[in-house]
């Protein structure tokens, strides 16, 4: 299973709509980095509204995607993390410290724009 990555001007938009198994998550990481390289994106929004669970492995993959993208010069914003998912992460002691977040795709784009242009 592959997660579709959409390009919008300088940005990549990704909405995760499937239950993330380990392989899909790793494949996703690879695809995002390749796409950034291919089109030279400056920003990435990953929308997690439909994701019902993030365990330590998926959290690590997401955190890594953010760090790796930053290395390649693209800012990443995670959006739409559900309350139940956020509480579970906090309970587990996973804070995702350096990761920028926003309520939804729209606000995520706003955030990228103001950080990159303002």
């Amino acid at each position: 299973m592959r997660i579709p990555i959409l390009k919008l001007h300088d940005y990549l938009l990704i909405s995760v709509q499937v239950e993330l198994d380990d392989q899909t998550a790793l494949k996703f990481q690879e695809d995002v980095l390749n796409k950034i390289h291919e089109v030279g994106s400056r920003g990435v929004v990953i929308d997690l509204t439909s994701v019902e669970m993030i365990d330590s492995f998926i959290a690590k993959v997401l955190g890594d995607v953010v760090d790796m993208s930053n290395l390649m010069g693209a800012k990443v914003v995670l959006t739409g993390i559900q309350p139940a998912v956020a509480i579970t992460l906090i309970d587990m002691g996973i804070v995702l410290d350096e990761v920028p977040t926003a309520l939804d795709l729209e606000q995520g784009l706003d955030k990228l724009q103001s950080e990159l242009e303002g």
């Binding site: 739409g80 993390i81 956020a86 509480i87 992460l89 906090i90 977040t101 309520l103």
Partner: peptide
């Protein structure tokens, strides 16, 4: 502190 970290995760 936990509550505020969770708030940050959902994007506020």
């Amino acid at each position: 502190i936990q509550a505020s970290e969770a708030v940050r995760l959902v994007g506020a």
